[in-house]
């Protein structure tokens, strides 16, 4: 409505001066606002710069080491950066890291999905809440304590399993056991599985909670059993959530340091058998070798750390890409 037709007796609205109009057009430009926007945007940019700096400095130190490396960095089985000439490669570490993480995933993902289903769909409501709370707490147990426990409790208990695998599956070569202490890649994989159970459970639980009730009730109304409800409405809805939860767990398993360093008895060699000592992981190798490393050795360790950084970056980035389709849940709070 035009102002002039509204009420002819009302005083005309004051025209804004040029300066006022300018200020209004610029919006919030009070000094306080400007400083605050600057600070908060600055922090955001700082996070980006930090990520860039991590990549840059690791690459810089790693390039020093790799340029002096006489062996092939990716395929060599040696780790002798202090030697003359220095020779080192990450083949053994890559093998150990990948194998132990795969074992951990194979064990942890089905069990974690089972627990998440138990909490959301099977347990009585009160019990489910309590279990969810306990799982939350367990996610906070430091890895060094898992390491202590692994050495004292887990490793001795694995002897029976190792013997059984050797007797019945030893012919495959993968499960051959020559009888040393059970501190091999399989033991590490099992320990990692226990350690990443809480995070996978937490994230999948959040996803299962968000399945629309309508989907489930529709399935129930059609006469589906509880398992059919889960298979037809819960799992399809939660599939991307389960995948990204697993990848978050994988990221943790790849970078786990102290527990692996305490349980594994490392040898710098690739062994076909998962039950015999052999192999190592990136993080474990850094933690165990750092103390005695020469300056050259430190740079070599940083080079292997750079590889670990890139791998976890890719895994986590992929997990986030999948998860960002549904923005509501995130493993950051798990």
């Amino acid at each position: 409505m035009d102002i002039s037709t509204q009420n002819p007796t009302s005083p005309p609205t004051p025209q804004p001066t040029e300066a006022e109009a300018k200020r209004a057009a610029r919006g919030a430009t009070r000094p306080g606002d400007r400083i605050f926007v600057g600070l908060s945007r600055g922090s955001g940019i700082f996070v980006l710069v930090l990520m860039g700096a991590i990549a840059a400095f690791l690459t810089y130190r790693a390039s020093i080491a790799i340029s002096k490396d006489e062996a092939n960095f990716f395929t060599s089985f040696d780790w002798n950066p202090a030697g003359v000439p220095p020779e080192f490669g990450i083949a053994v570490l890559a093998f150990g890291t990948v194998v132990s993480s795969i074992i951990a995933m194979a064990i942890a993902v089905p069990i974690a999905v089972g627990i998440a289903l138990f909490i959301t769909h099977y347990a009585p409501r009160k019990l489910g809440g309590t279990i969810a709370f306990v799982v939350d707490l367990l996610a906070a147990v430091p890895s060094i304590v898992y390491g202590l426990w692994g050495v004292l409790v887990l490793v001795p208990h694995l002897n029976g399993l190792y013997g059984w695998l050797d007797t019945y599956l030893g012919w495959t070569g993968v499960f051959e056991w020559s009888g040393g202490p059970a501190r091999s890649l399989l033991a590490v994989g099992i320990l990692l599985a226990i350690m990443i159970l809480p995070i996978i459970t937490n994230v999948s639980r959040e996803v299962f909670r968000q399945v629309p009730r309508m989907h489930e009730e529709a399935a129930l109304a059609l006469g589906a059993t509880r398992w059919e409800v889960i298979r037809m409405s819960v799992l399809p809805f939660g599939r991307s959530g389960i995948i990204s939860a697993s990848m978050l767990g994988l990221g943790r398993a790849l970078g786990e340091t102290m527990a692996v360093a305490m349980v594994l008895s490392p040898t710098f060699d690739i062994n076909a058998s998962l039950l015999d000592a052999g192999g190592g992981t990136f993080a474990q190798n850094i933690a165990s070798k750092f103390n005695e490393a020469s300056p050259m050795g430190r740079d070599a360790l940083i080079a292997s750390g750079l590889v670990l950084f890139v791998i976890t970056l890719l895994v986590n980035g992929a997990a986030r890409m999948i998860i960002s389709r549904r923005k509501e849940y995130s493993g950051a709070n798990a």
Binding site: A283, L301, T312
Partner: peptide, 28 residues
């Protein structure tokens, strides 16, 4: 774009192994 990039990298940063963070400070 800036906010999107920050969100993504904060998420990715959640997954940085602690030993890599240690190596970064070590080298710097």
């Amino acid at each position: 774009k800036l906010a999107k990039a920050v969100t993504f990298f904060v998420d990715v940063m959640t997954g940085i192994p602690s030993i890599v963070a240690g190596l970064f400070i070590l080298s710097l």
